[in-house]
């Protein structure tokens, strides 16, 4: 999967590395800003009221 992704990134090695880094940061941002805030209230960890 990741090897396939790497082969399909354009440009020479440093450019690919840069694009890969941007992709990783983008995915983490998506998780932190959208996915986790949505998922957290649905999980049984943090309800504090009675």
């Amino acid at each position: 999967m990741y090897a396939w992704l790497w082969r399909h990134l354009p440009g020479p090695r440093p450019v690919r590395a840069l694009i890969a880094l941007v992709l990783i940061v983008g995915v983490i941002a998506l998780l932190m800003l959208v996915v986790f805030p949505w998922a957290e209230p649905l999980l049984p960890f943090n309800n504090v009221s009675v």
Binding site: M1, Y2, A3, I28, L31, M32, F36, A39, E40, F45, N46
Partner: peptide
């Protein structure tokens, strides 16, 4: 097999990120 392994590792990393989110980012 390799793709399955990569997906499992990815899932583990996402879970660790979630812990980090809950304990620090919030």
């Amino acid at each position: 097999i390799r793709t399955a392994g990569e997906l499992l590792i990815t899932a583990g990393v996402v879970l660790l990120l979630f812990v980090f989110y809950t304990l620090y980012v919030t």
